[in-house]
Simulated scan of single mutants.
Amino acid sequence: MKIAIPALDEKTVSSHFGKTPFFMIFEINENKEIIGSKKVGNSPCHGAAHEEGHGGQGPGTTVQTLLSEGVNAVVFVNMGQRSVNALASVVELYQTSLEDVEAVLKEFLNGNLAKLN
């Protein structure tokens, strides 16, 4: 299983999925052990163009980035409805208020995060 966490750096969770500079992607085996990790860049969308759907990149680029990495789950703080809609049928979504990547990962591995979909 691969889990993606929007991040500002290797330790800090980004507060908004679509505007995150990159994702930390962790590969987890059947024993809930981390067997690999990597940092994957994002092409964040910004401003009103994204929100109104005129111009900006919209959720497609970010969603495609994650799908091309084979992600099975995404843990996020905030995510726009368009991105939720685009991902909900293809990956598991989990919402958190934690700001530390390691803490989010620990909560996920312990089964303490509620699935959104």
Rank of each mutant, 00 (worst) to 15 (best):
A103Y: 05
Q95H: 05
A103C: 01
T20E: 04
E107V: 03
V90C: 12
D100F: 04
K2S: 02
S37W: 07
G41M: 05
E102T: 06
I25T: 10
T20A: 14
G80H: 07
P6K: 09
F26E: 06
L98G: 00
V101M: 08
H46G: 00
E27T: 15
L93P: 12
V84T: 13
K39T: 12
Y94T: 02
G111K: 09
S97E: 15
V63G: 07
Q95C: 10
V101A: 11
N72A: 11
L98V: 09
Q64N: 14
N31M: 11
G70C: 11
Q81M: 13
P44S: 11
Y94P: 07
T65K: 03
T65I: 13
G80Q: 11
E102M: 03
H54M: 05
P44R: 09
E92A: 14
G41N: 09
I25N: 09
N72S: 14
E69Q: 15
I35W: 08
R82M: 06
V90Q: 15
L109P: 03
S14G: 01
I3G: 05
H46K: 05
T61K: 15
G80R: 13
V77Y: 11
M1Q: 07
N29V: 02
T12S: 13
G55A: 04
N117D: 12
N31C: 01
K19Y: 00
E99N: 12
H50Q: 09
N85C: 08
K19E: 08
L93A: 11
P6R: 10
F76K: 03
F22Y: 13
G70T: 07
A73H: 03
S97M: 05
L87K: 07
L98W: 05
V91A: 04
E52W: 04
P6W: 11
L109T: 03
I25S: 05
N78T: 02
Q64W: 02
G55K: 01
M1E: 05
S14V: 08
P21F: 02
Q95S: 12
F76V: 10
F23G: 06
L109H: 08
L105W: 08
L116Q: 14
V40I: 15
D100T: 11
A73T: 11
F108C: 02
P59R: 01
K32N: 15
G60V: 07
V77Q: 15
S43R: 12
